[in-house]
Amino acid sequence: MSDADKTLLTAYVDGVTELAPHERKRVEAVLESQPGARAEADATRDLLATLREMPRTGNEPDWSELEAAIHRRVGDDLPHTPWWRNWRWVVPTAAMATIATIAILLLVMRDDELQPVAHVSPAVQIEPAPNEMTPGAVVWLDEQAIDLDGVDADRLLEAFDDLDDLEPGDSLASDADGLLPVDDLSWVDTLDDKALDRAAMLLEHKKKT
């Protein structure tokens, strides 16, 4: 029998319910398979019984008298609890509530800041433009329908990409071949205030995003 089994056997003899089910099974298997284990268990049980039967040291006092003495020393009132012990949960709770309130306020304020942009978007959204460029399709550009008949669609898209890469001061590429009136900007003068405002809002929106 291993030391671990002997330890379990002693615990089993003195408190079978305090062993885990698998420990109990293990001890019971040992008891079944090893004849010496039963003798060991019996000897342990006898010793523990003898120990428990030993007379207690000293003469017990009068328990009601001892209880009364304790009551006198303790008093009739409940123990005084320091104020901080009652408040110790209030402070962290209040701190958490404050932090949560500040966080919510910050989120609300941030939403308010973003709101104009959100309102601008529908206004900037001018009119739905055709998504696909098909032969004979029309591109909606600057509130004008431009007929793409006879224009190479791939070349046109490249031209748009080039426009995105332009730096301030660069001259506009002429790849668009007249699609945009790049040489003649007099059309700008024809824009009314409403259109200019929309353009400004659109630029502002782009900057933010």
């Binding site: 040291t57 003469n59 017990e60 006092p61 001892l66 304790i70 303790v74």
Partner: peptide, 28 residues
């Protein structure tokens, strides 16, 4: 628990009266 505590304490101190005194202190 006074009985159990008293016997526990009694193993530590030399007299019954001392054990009672210590038990009172413990309960306080």
């Amino acid at each position: 628990h006074q009985r159990g505590m008293w016997h526990l304490v009694r193993r530590y101190v030399k007299s019954d009266a001392d054990a009672s005194d210590v038990v009172q202190q413990a309960f306080v």
